[in-house]
């Protein structure tokens, strides 16, 4: 099982700050996005498949090809605007 977090605009768009996902085998960031979009629909595509969507795995920036393993924490969020 992995924990998936959503922040800011995406949290509002999906109406969801966090969820757990059963992982049957090791997957990649791109696979996880596709699976969530397939199960969830349009809002999920808008949040997860936007050109500037950022992803972190275990609180470190990750990219589409990076692996996700059981127990990981995965976060999706829009470009940051702090400071």
């Amino acid at each position: 099982m992995i924990k998936v977090l959503f922040f800011a605009k995406y949290r509002e768009l999906l109406g969801l700050g966090q969820m757990t996902v059963e992982l049957h085998s090791t997957t990649t960031v791109a696979d996880l996005k596709n699976r969530l979009v397939k199960e969830g629909g349009d809002h999920w595509a808008q949040a997860l498949l936007a050109d500037n969507t950022l992803c972190a795995v275990n609180q470190t920036i990750a990219h589409d090809g990076d692996a996700i393993a059981d127990g990981d924490e995965v976060a999706f969020y829009p470009p940051v605007t702090g400071g």
Binding site: F7, A56, Y77, P78, V80, T81, G82, G83
Partner: peptide
């Protein structure tokens, strides 16, 4: 770098 990397969002 804080402006471009640290995960904060303003509404």
């Amino acid at each position: 770098y804080l402006k471009t990397e640290a995960p904060f969002w303003k509404k």
